[in-house]
């Protein structure tokens, strides 16, 4: 059964065929964003492969969120190219796609998890409708199937299915964040952008969410670009990381190498600032 007949989306599993695993999903070259004469980010190049988690670390104002928004077509870059390999294998320049294509990509093959779940949820409709919205957007028109799919995803993110008709307003911060994640994953996306997903949460709630994210990313073979100022989050979730300062990438590589053997003065400062428990 396909819930999304019009797009032929495979909602069951997002794992990419092995033949494509060697090609990057997202490739960025020479990307810059200026706000007038202020630098948002400058000359950033990167690539993300299927199933890979890339963390972008740096303190606030370092340009990491600007970069994320430029990758996710939420903010038009001043210069540079962002290319994405579509499901049919063709590589497209995201900023040459029509707005309709961009938006379709955004709500089918991509996800975006906001720091504040209010920005990523519809607060005035039920949890079930929040999860089902993307499916309805791509043509799902069977209430019963939408509902069982929503129940399945709620349980997957550890929200009791009995809460399906509750408004997100009645949910705790951690539950709202998990609901936002379920809402994004329901169409079987291949690439997820996350902006400080554990930002506003209590430490114990953070740990649970991180662990859930780690499992989902591994089980679904998701590619993730995650912005975080928290190096522990980067350590736990990411394979590779980039450190940004003043809008530029100053160091990048394997996450454990950046954290265990940081080269740049700023990275050493960041790493040495982690609280040891």
């Amino acid at each position: 059964m396909s819930l999304a007949p019009e797009t032929g989306l495979d909602t069951a599993k997002g794992a990419a065929p092995a033949a494509d695993a060697d090609l990057p999903l997202l490739r960025v070259s020479g990307l810059s964003k200026f706000y007038g004469d202020r630098v948002g980010c400058r000359d950033v190049s990167l690539a993300v492969w299927p199933g890979e988690v890339l963390a972008i670390a740096g303190e606030s104002g370092s340009g990491k969120t600007t970069l994320l928004n430029c990758l996710a077509t939420r903010l038009t870059p001043t210069s540079g190219v962002v290319e994405y390999r579509m499901r049919d294998g063709s590589v497209r320049d995201l900023y040459r796609l029509s707005e309709a294509e961009q938006r379709l990509l955004m709500r089918t093959d991509w996800g975006f998890v906001h720091q504040n779940p209010i920005d990523g949820l519809r607060m005035n409709v039920s949890a079930g409708a929040n999860v089902g919205e993307r499916l309805m957007a791509v043509g799902a028109r069977h209430y019963g199937k939408l509902r069982s799919e929503a129940e399945r995803w709620l349980e997957r993110v550890e929200i009791p299915a009995s809460r399906i008709d509750d408004d997100p307003r009645a949910f705790s911060g951690g539950m709202r964040q998990r609901l936002q994640i379920a809402r994004n994953l329901v169409t079987g996306p291949r690439l997820i952008f996350m902006d400080e997903p554990t930002g506003g949460l209590d430490v114990s709630v953070q740990a649970r969410l991180l662990d859930l994210l780690r499992q989902l990313v591994a089980d679904l073979g998701l590619a993730v670009v995650i912005v975080t100022h928290d190096l522990a989050v980067a350590r736990l979730l990411s394979h590779r990381m980039m450190v940004m300062k003043g809008g530029e990438v100053i160091e990048e590589g394997l996450t454990d190498r950046i954290l265990d053997d940081p080269r740049e003065p700023y990275t050493q400062l960041l790493v040495s600032s982690i609280l040891q428990v």
Partner: peptide, 9 residues
């Protein structure tokens, strides 16, 4: 060991 494993440069 860490260089061989790649987590030291």
């Amino acid at each position: 060991l860490k260089m061989v494993y790649g987590n030291y440069g």
